[in-house]
Amino acid sequence: MRSVPCSPSSWPASVQGGTGGRTAGIGTGHVIRGLERSEASGNSGSMSALHPPSVRVRNVVGQDMPDLLRLDREVFLDDPMPHSILRQFVDMFADHLLVAEDEDGRLCAYVLATPPHRGRSWIVSLGVASAMRRRGLAEQLMRESLENLRTEGAHTVLLWVEPTNKPATALYDSLGFVPDREGPRPDHFGPGADRILMTLHTTP
């Protein structure tokens, strides 16, 4: 799920100054660019792990670039992040890009957030490989990322979600995100790409 579109000109202010935004649709492949794409596809409710996968969660490193690019293209078939943009995110926000690797050392999930700016952060992208879905991995990554942001002083975390991505919406709701009262914003990410803004207020 992606919460922010790949075009820099349409990123929120916090992203334009050094942050990005995508959320890999939980199960649908496009819900978080801003939590628009998220891996919760097929999950429901709190998305608790049915069969916790054996994965190692860590910060991204430069050597992960080929595997991360492969993962992003696998998860976001219709909207993969350009190599140049993903490379810059790795360079600029390594401390806020968590990856999960499976027992074979292959990346199977990632979440990208923006560093707190005046107490606000965005979830830019959340993606989980299809073979690793329905195991609570998206929730695990989100919780670790949110805890890191709280520790760094973020008191507000935002993301965009596709109105039809019910699994992603359910995941964010279980984590405490609240949808904006405005409801879906027509064509927010382009013609036909409606989005709902969701906000989480944290306690640093």
Rank of each mutant, 00 (worst) to 15 (best):
V57D: 01
L197Y: 04
W160N: 13
Y110A: 11
D102H: 03
R106G: 12
S130Y: 02
G25R: 12
H51A: 14
P186V: 08
S41D: 06
R185P: 00
T151S: 07
L171T: 04
W160P: 02
P191Y: 05
H51W: 14
R181L: 04
E152M: 12
P80A: 07
E139R: 15
A13Q: 11
M47R: 11
S48M: 09
G20V: 04
V75G: 03
A193Q: 00
P163L: 06
M47N: 13
R56P: 03
V57G: 01
L35C: 12
P12V: 15
T169Q: 11
D187M: 01
G176M: 09
V99R: 05
P80Q: 06
P66K: 12
E103M: 10
S174K: 06
S125H: 14
S84H: 13
C6W: 15
T156A: 06
P53Y: 09
T28A: 11
T151D: 07
L141K: 02
V61H: 14
G20E: 03
S130P: 00
W160D: 02
E74Q: 14
G34F: 10
P52L: 11
G17I: 06
P179L: 01
V99M: 05
A94D: 00
D95F: 03
E182D: 12
V31P: 00
F89G: 10
G17L: 06
T202M: 12
A109L: 05
G127H: 09
R133C: 10
A138Q: 05
G45L: 03
S3G: 15
E39M: 08
V61W: 11
A24G: 15
D102A: 01
G29K: 04
F189E: 07
S3E: 13
F177H: 02
S84G: 03
G21P: 04
L159N: 08
S38R: 10
L141H: 08
S44D: 09
T151K: 15
S44W: 11
R106F: 03
M92N: 13
Y110P: 00
H83R: 15
W160L: 11
R70H: 14
H117W: 12
A129R: 13
R58C: 04
D187Y: 04
I123F: 06
Q140R: 14
F189H: 14
A40H: 09
R2D: 11
S3T: 15
T169N: 10
Y110W: 12
E162I: 12
M1Y: 13
D79A: 13
F177A: 00
G190K: 02
R2W: 13
G42P: 05
T169E: 00
L200I: 08
T202D: 00
P53F: 08
A94M: 08
V15I: 08
L98Q: 05
A129K: 12
H96P: 02
G105Q: 03
H117Q: 13
G176H: 12
L175E: 01
T199R: 15
A24F: 10
E144C: 04
